[in-house]
Design a protein around this nucleic acid. Sequence first.
DNA 1: TCAAATTCTTAATCTAGTTCAAGAATCTTT
DNA 2: AAAGATTCTTGAACTAGATTAAGAATTTGA
Lengths: 195, 195
Amino acid sequence: MNHDRIISNINRWITLKDEEIDFFISRLNHRKVRRKQYVLQEGDICRHYTFVNKGCLRLYTVDTNGIEHILQFAPEDYWVADIGGFYQEIPTSLYIDALEPTEILQISKPDLISTFENFPAFDRVFRIMVENAFVGLQKRILQNISSTAEERYLTFFKNYPQLINRLPQTQIASYIGITPEFLSKLRKNLAAKKR
Amino acid sequence: MNHDRIISNINRWITLKDEEIDFFISRLNHRKVRRKQYVLQEGDICRHYTFVNKGCLRLYTVDTNGIEHILQFAPEDYWVADIGGFYQEIPTSLYIDALEPTEILQISKPDLISTFENFPAFDRVFRIMVENAFVGLQKRILQNISSTAEERYLTFFKNYPQLINRLPQTQIASYIGITPEFLSKLRKNLAAKKR
DNA sequence: TCAAATTCTTAATCTAGTTCAAGAATCTTT
DNA sequence: AAAGATTCTTGAACTAGATTAAGAATTTGA
């Protein structure tokens, strides 16, 4: 498997030495997952940080009524994990599965820790990665406490143009926190407005 | 000013050497802010990471209708900043102000960067800090897309018992994303249920 | 300690979004 | 290419939460 995508991903914020990159790459396992296959299930311990090389994963919970609530989509170039459970090694309440046939690269906790110990630059890489993700989540919270469903949909549209025609609407509805029926109505209204 | 609280805060996840702690502490400025005084205003560049030693700050936006939406409360032992704007040095859209007379410790970007350069252990400290904050935000998103206002209020009650009787209800309403009037009704219903 | 400011409550009316149901359209897999 | 599964749309009835307004209670700061 080709490592170009993950190399440019970790080189995005700071430039690493070849030795550092080679060490990190050598720790990765790669896997293919079929559509609908689970990468993580409630009750499991999240043993890997997962990078998506091709395809698309989703991170979500299932509530007591059996309804799914999507925390994150992870298309090409995104990382996913139950971060808390990964470091503390406690059973997760989250699910990760594939929305499309997907190719992933994974690093285990022992391998990531040894990467941090050998090359402190990776503490920085992962610090910056999480900082960026944090800022993204803050923006999402703000949307959720201050905007209407229509505004949230339009923001999703702007932030993830690659995903709009790639994901079923029911998944997008779940991400922005409304029912699929209501999303359908919103779209109808928006289409009417455009004319 | 006493540094015990911030020292135990940064020592919480990994144990630092005296030399590392001393360097970091020597970079801090301390300030007192009065109730309602701004620490950051829309349009400013966020020049400091701020630690609360005593009192309580809030991080929020003001929408086009003049309504405030609270992203974070920062009582004793919490850090606040517009993280994105801090590193990129771009004008913020957020406000930080004091809900009570507050004592803070601040570190500037140049000082934080030089701390990272001299002592890579701090990349790890800040990585772990942001990871924990990230996990907290994920839980909050989940609440917002999946729970009723009543459930969100009860969760706030459980997560921040120290704050419930310390903050005006209007601030809590803004944090959980409802109007103060509706929070008042919720509380009435909850009190009735208890009997 | 008192006046001003802020916060809290209640009630009536309104609306964004849900629920339920059922048929139409579109994918997936063989 | 067909059958089954999933997704999308529409409509009617419902409800959680918003809005407006006004008075009561509490907090604040001089």
